[in-house]
Amino acid sequence: MKARRSTTGLPRAGGNATPGRRNPLGASTGRRSRVRDRPSATGRAGGWSGRPARDRARIDEVQQGVRYRRVFVTLVGMIVALSAVVVLVGTVGLFRETRSRPLTAEEQNRYKQEEIARRWQAWPSTGIFPEELKYLGLDRAQQYARRVGIAPEARCRDAVDPAVGAVLTEHGCVSMLRATYVDQTSTFVFTVGVAVLEDEEARASAGGDLAQDDRVGVLPVAFPGTVTERFGVQQRQRTGWVGAGPYLVFTTGGYADGRTRAAIGPEESLHSELWPAARSIGNQVAYFLADPPKVPPCTQGNVC
């Protein structure tokens, strides 16, 4: 007889179980279980329990790096922005300083002073001492004095009398330039000396300390082989000076024939045209040196 199946679908007790089927009570009857065993909580550090801690540490490191990077980027941005502001402000200031604008009255005056003060070096010696200079002769007739020669540049104390040299040295005299002229008839000889002071204030102070003595002043310069070769210290009839900018322009005159001051009587000395001619020549040299230059209206020329 065939065995009857239970209405519940289970084999009868004591019967043989069908091969390959799982026992309803959980016992394996031959087929491998599909349920995996969970790893032990007491596994080694590399197991399940160590992995979350390691992951958290890595995440913390990444987050900390992100924070540092944000701080670094913020600082760099602030530095770049500050640098850009500084450059912009500097550029604006430089533009304002360098752009052409009208000169102020103070700047115009300083321009004139600086231009006049450097003429003794900027100009050639023939510009300081022109080849011809005008003067008024007898009956106020216009005549011309002719330049005979220009002396080498000298120290101030070596080109004037000792008393004058002491004053110039005390006030910082820089140099002395000299040239010698003769009148239109070659009767009179004149030596013009330009004492260079540091500035106009020093020149005014030196002029105030000079003694009013027409016997001392610039030393004559004679040029051998010319009509001036007999013009020396004893032949000076009179001396004087005039201020112009930072310069003291000295003048002395005498006779080309070698007559000394002692040989000329007071009456002849007072009515001679020698000294008016000498003073006129010295004044012209001073005028050229201190003639105010043309000042440009703007800092960069004629266009503002």
Rank of each mutant, 00 (worst) to 15 (best):
L270G: 10
R279H: 09
F288P: 00
G253I: 09
P276S: 07
Q284S: 05
G282C: 03
T252M: 13
A263Y: 02
G243H: 08
Y287F: 13
T299F: 09
A263T: 08
A278S: 14
Y247A: 08
F288H: 05
Y255A: 12
I264G: 02
E268F: 11
R261T: 08
I281P: 00
G240V: 08
T251R: 12
W241T: 11
A278M: 13
K294V: 15
Y287C: 00
R279C: 01
E267M: 14
G301L: 10
A262F: 06
Y287L: 14
A263V: 00
T299Q: 10
Q284M: 04
E273S: 09
A262W: 07
P292S: 08
G282E: 08
T260A: 02
T260H: 04
K294N: 13
R261A: 14
P297K: 11
G245K: 02
I264Q: 06
G245W: 03
A244D: 02
L274A: 00
P246V: 11
S269Q: 10
G265T: 01
V285F: 12
A278H: 04
L274I: 06
R261Y: 14
V285I: 15
P266W: 07
I264E: 05
E267I: 15
A262R: 12
A263I: 00
Y255L: 14
T252D: 13
Y255R: 13
D291R: 15
A286T: 01
P293N: 00
D257H: 09
Y247G: 04
F288V: 11
V285T: 13
Q300W: 01
E268N: 11
P266F: 05
Q284W: 02
